[in-house]
Design a protein around this nucleic acid. Structure first.
Lengths: 231, 231
DNA sequence: CCGCAAGTTTGCTGAAGGACAAAGAGGTCC
DNA sequence: GGACCTCTTTGTCCTTCAGCAAACTTGCGG
């Protein structure tokens, strides 16, 4: 396999302060890998042997309950670190990571985490900032689940995906990876039936346009109203 | 004010690896403060000027929604750090901290955070472990809110408090700080009415014994059944 | 010792949304 | 091109629990 191009990492937050030579060093230790849609990158409870950086595609981080239900904990977009158990001193992965679409990621053995954080300026800081943001997002979801009705939560979930991964198309803004009704229900703590009903209603109102596994938000501002201080 | 005794910190996880001299240094820079029940230690959105260590008492970390509802994000027990915004690169507090009972805490200016993490072995590691645990707890709560019925969530919340702060009394295990029905509803995303009904029912079944702001769990094992794989 | 505030209990009602059921609509694999 | 599997839609029923209302209890402050 030929050498990875340095431009892959240049400009990504965790590495933005580094020189060419340092980036070269980091890349030479990285293992690149491609994942098909639905492929598992790592599994909840397994030994955390590597930490990862998503270059292209989208990742869903998922927890499974004893009852077999799945909860989507997090979505990862290109440029983000994930599976960073070592940052929190964990030796097993707390959740399972699955490619939401065809994806490309780099990974490094966890023993390099300590090296990276001490050797490269900004790496530790940026990583912990990311963690802080994720903590904040989780707090927001707890608050939503505890206080808001299903319709508001689903609207908020759509908006979150649009914000994180929206790409402009002529009809509006499209969520850039495949999403099923069931996926949305696993983000919002409801059933796929209820999500389907909501999307049908919103389609009728001209707020979204959706086909199988594929959603375009045509009137984001109206979703904001639905998600927040009611409309 | 006389010097703080070194035994205050000896043995607490963040400082367990340090020598006397180092502990002395840390203590000399600490500001001790007592808080009445209900007193605010810091407020959501304010500049994070200090980070804190709880020595005695219990702290509730609370978020308020636009609608004015409160959500209890976290309980802090003696020996734990809190308000550690600097660890996550935040410059404002993400939530409000309130003394659940009369409490005593030390605090340091945030500029010392960097110094502590580099200078004292184990401090950074222990702090990030704590953070990892909190992240895990939050994930658990999200899962609960998304998949479990009210009764299970309330049972789980009681068990969590018992685990974190239970002290043995003759009738069973008592939650060591004042808790109202409203507080419990703010942890579980329900109403105080529903919580009151559940506690009444459990009282009748001999699972708990509660008086105003005060709860003793007399049959923890039965609560476990209620909280988990249904009873 | 009285009045008031905060916390608690209980009843009733209605709506939200979960559970169950069944059928249609794309895609994909052979 | 057919069989099958996954995803989606829609209908009906029924439980759970939030909302509203009102009374009761306990403890504190004046």
């Amino acid at each position: 396999m030929s050498k990875l191009d340095e431009s892959l990492l240049t400009g990504l937050p965790p590495f933005s302060l580094l020189e060419r030579g340092q980036i070269r060093e980091i890349l030479d230790q990285a293992l690149p890998k491609r994942y098909d849609e639905g492929a598992e990158i790592f599994h909840e409870g397994h030994d955390a042997e590597r930490f990862h950086l998503l270059l292209d595609g989208y990742i869903r981080v998922v927890k499974t309950t004893e009852g077999g239900e799945q909860i989507i904990a997090l979505h990862i977009s290109p440029g983000q670190l994930f599976g960073i158990a070592p940052a929190l001193n964990r030796d097993t992965y707390p959740a399972t990571a699955i490619a939401a679409s065809e994806s490309l990621a780099l990974s490094w053995p966890v023993r390099l985490w300590g090296e990276f954080t001490t050797k490269y300026p900004g790496f530790a800081t940026e990583s912990y900032s990311t963690l802080g943001q994720r903590l904040g997002e989780m707090q927001t979801r707890i608050t939503e689940l505890a206080t808001q009705a299903v319709e508001q939560r689903v609207a908020a979930a759509l908006l979150r995906m649009v914000t994180q991964s929206g790409r402009k198309v002529e009809e509006g803004i499209e969520i850039a990876f495949p999403v099923t009704r069931r996926n949305i229900s696993e983000m919002t703590g409801t059933t796929l039936h209820t999500v389907s009903r909501l999307l049908s209603a919103w389609e009728k109102d001209g707020i979204v346009h959706s086909t199988r596994k594929h959603i375009v938000v045509t009137a984001p501002h109206r979703l904001v109203l639905l998600s927040g201080a009611q409309g």
